[in-house]
């Protein structure tokens, strides 16, 4: 597959080890992965790379996940967004779903759930693009 056809995944987490791991894991599964250690960084990468799928943490220093999401939404059509967060609060989840978040996983996550979500989105997007 040519690099430009690859599905682009952006992971936003202030824990660098998590970013490194997601990058490693999904690069091996054929995706092009970018990572951002803060909401601010995520916005810049978003502008330049226009990712197809975003894995987003909520609690971060600076602008948090919710705010990042709102700012992305102001300017672009929201891609598939998967929240991965230690916060397990029904109200927060409702708020995020209302903002257009596709899925919400609570840390510690089941790795298989994340895999399935990401790979299904990738497949969906690929089919949509080829049509």
């Amino acid at each position: 597959m040519k690099p430009k056809d690859k599905i682009k995944l952006l992971v936003v987490d202030d824990e660098e080890l998590i970013c490194n791991y997601i990058e490693h894991r999904f690069t091996k599964r054929g995706l092009e992965v970018f990572f951002a250690l803060s909401g601010e960084e995520a916005l810049i990468i978003f502008e330049n790379k226009k990712p197809d799928v975003v894995i987003l943490d909520i609690m971060m220093k600076g602008i948090d996940g919710v705010e990042t999401l709102k700012r992305i939404k102001e300017k672009y059509i929201l891609p598939k967004v998967i929240i991965v967060s230690a916060v397990n609060n029904q109200e927060k989840i409702r708020e995020l779903k209302a903002l257009g978040v596709s899925d919400y996983l609570t840390k510690p996550i089941l790795l298989k759930e994340l895999d399935t979500l990401v790979m299904n989105f990738a497949k969906e997007i690929k089919t949509a693009k080829s049509n």
């Binding site: 080890l17 490194n20 791991y21 490693h24 089941l110």
Partner: peptide, 12 residues
């Protein structure tokens, strides 16, 4: 880095 799964990140 990259290979190591961050602690507290996953459960089984």
């Amino acid at each position: 880095r990259g290979s190591v799964i961050p602690k507290e990140y996953i459960r089984i």
